[in-house]
Amino acid sequence: MKDPIIQCDQLSLLLGGMKVLDKVTLSVHDGDFLGIIGPNGGGKTTLLRVILGLEAPSAGSVRVFGGAPGSFPARIGYVPQRLFFDRDFPISIRELVLMGRISNKKLFQHYNKRDREKADEAICTAGLERLAERRIGDLSGGELQRALIARALAGDPELLLLDEPTASIDPQMKTTIYDLMEHLKEKLTIVLVTHDTGTISRYVTRTASLNVTLELYESALSPNRESLSALYHYPVNPVVHHSQVSRTLDHP
């Protein structure tokens, strides 16, 4: 069996004296599509940050592509949730996506024709061709989210990490984002952190629920309603998800 792409062993993390992750053991293999669900403050984003090398674990170990986290930036595409950037930043979608190429470039190297082609390819995959010259400030939440996915794809990653890609966008847009994911999982290993407990079960190959400790479900079956309610400490209603073919992914 091939080495796992992500391997967490007994991973614990304290942030400001609070235990955010407790003895999390998890492996993600080539071709997996892992959905991680859990309540706010359950450590989902933190787990991604550890995998990215932005936070160092307090105990336990993490290996990504067999090395320390952060060793192979070019092999990972990251779609952050919290939008740290300023929506008024003078930058077009095309340039935003081009930034995804930076992990493949050396210091001082300027972007070349190949980088621009890769960026355009990613823009097409995300269905944003017609918006490519728009300033990011003129986009809707869903369009911006797809632009961020395109940025992650532009770097030709093997592993895609997505943090709440469907938070704060309307339901119809959510469907197109998930359809995009469905398309991407053919080629990529995906780890998706989300609140959409009902929806993801249709797409993922495995589900994990994280609330400081991690529980892994070795199938695409969603955790049932009882276990979800236990995880969230309040009743959870599965949301019915309407299948819909997205226009954005149909390229001639």
Binding site: G53, L96, M99, F108, H110
Partner: peptide, 22 residues
């Protein structure tokens, strides 16, 4: 001129720039 892509990246989103290996 030499560092325009790096400066753009850290101006736009420093954390993403760090994840990208800068």
């Amino acid at each position: 001129w030499l560092l325009n892509k790096e400066f753009l990246a850290i101006s736009f989103d420093e954390e993403y720039a760090r994840v990208s290996g800068l």
